[in-house]
């Protein structure tokens, strides 16, 4: 079952069209990376999903129920972490979670249990001072705790890591990875390393539409290029192979770096086997022969112009 379904979502601010018919489906129990350049419409999409913005047209369904702007009932399934979560500076973490729990309508005993459990999860268990003195990273972690309080089916995080230092980033990613399987997580980011670290699915948003989506391995297979890396014994041998007529006839692009050749065969009907055959014919035993997987970085650069 899909937790979140977005169909033909359109939204514009003034004359600027932010979303131009966005379609997206998030299956259950995935960690879903929502990638795009700054200003691509990620925050807008998320705010529409939690009912804070009214789209011009299109529908959003959460767990099969349609989202209505304003007081939406679908929010009971959702935990939301805004890009910069703001709290009441005069409250302590436990008090804040109690307030959130009371709004959600949890019984007070449950609120207490759940709050303690969550503060432990986000590493704020022993921090019993007012939120006003918290660092960005601590606020972000408390933000995750408040978002998870109602045991949501779907956790939406808007750029949870972008404002943090490397340690803060790692803490947030570890927390998100640790709830995998219990909750579906959608998080937006422009940091691809974060996506590679924890996501199993990815969607790339560009100019208001989805330009790429699927599991990471699917996407990598789809964008597989005939790229290979061959390591030779010496640089001379590599240069000799690179210059050979037989290789040039295949129609290849070769980049040499010392004793390593990076070869891309432009003809898609040819496989890596031709290179191996060629090496065998020349009686060369390479030290290493590797099929090069496309990185997310290169993919991103390719789909987002």
């Amino acid at each position: 079952m899909s937790v979140l379904e977005i169909s033909d979502l359109r939204m514009s601010f003034g004359s600027h069209q932010v979303l131009q018919g966005l379609n997206m489906v998030v299956p259950e129990n995935s960690i879903f990376g929502f990638v795009g350049k700054n200003g691509a419409g990620k925050t807008t999409t998320m705010r529409i999903v939690v009912g804070l913005l009214k789209p011009d047209s299109g529908t959003v369904k959460v767990c099969g129920e349609e989202v209505v702007y304003g007081d939406t009932k679908t929010n009971r399934h959702i935990g939301f972490l805004p890009d910069v979560p703001e709290f009441y500076g005069y409250m302590r973490p436990m008090e804040y979670l109690k307030l959130c729990g009371e709004i959600t309508g949890l019984p007070s005993k449950k609120i207490k249990e759940r709050s303690e459990e969550l503060l432990e999860l986000v590493g704020l268990k022993d921090v019993n001072r007012r939120i006003g003195g918290f660092s960005r990273g601590m606020k972000q972690r408390l933000g995750i705790a408040q978002a998870l309080l109602n045991e949501p089916k779907l956790l939406i995080c808007d750029e949870p890591t972008s404002a943090l230092d490397p340690i803060g980033r790692k803490q947030i990613l570890d927390i998100l990875a640790s709830i995998k399987g219990r909750t579906t997580v959608v998080f937006s980011t422009h940091i691809l390393a974060d996506v590679e670290r924890i996501c199993d699915r990815i969607a790339v948003l560009d100019q208001g539409i989805l330009v790429l989506s699927g599991t990471i391995s699917e996407i990598q297979k789809q964008y597989q290029r005939n790229s290979f890396m061959i390591k030779f014994a010496t640089a001379d041998q590599a240069a000799e192979f690179s210059a050979s007529e037989e290789l040039q006839q295949l129609g290849v692009k070769v980049v040499q770096e010392e004793n390593v050749l990076a070869i891309t065969i432009e003809d898609h009907s040819l496989r890596g086997q031709v290179l191996i055959d060629l090496l065998a014919a020349k009686q060369i035993t390479p030290e290493k022969f590797e099929v090069v997987e496309p990185t997310l970085e290169s993919l991103f650069a390719e789909v987002v112009q």
Binding site: V50, P85, N150
Partner: peptide, 12 residues
């Protein structure tokens, strides 16, 4: 400051 966002998205 945006302090109401968290509470409103909880259905307040």
């Amino acid at each position: 400051k945006g302090t109401l966002i968290n509470l409103l998205t909880k259905g307040l």
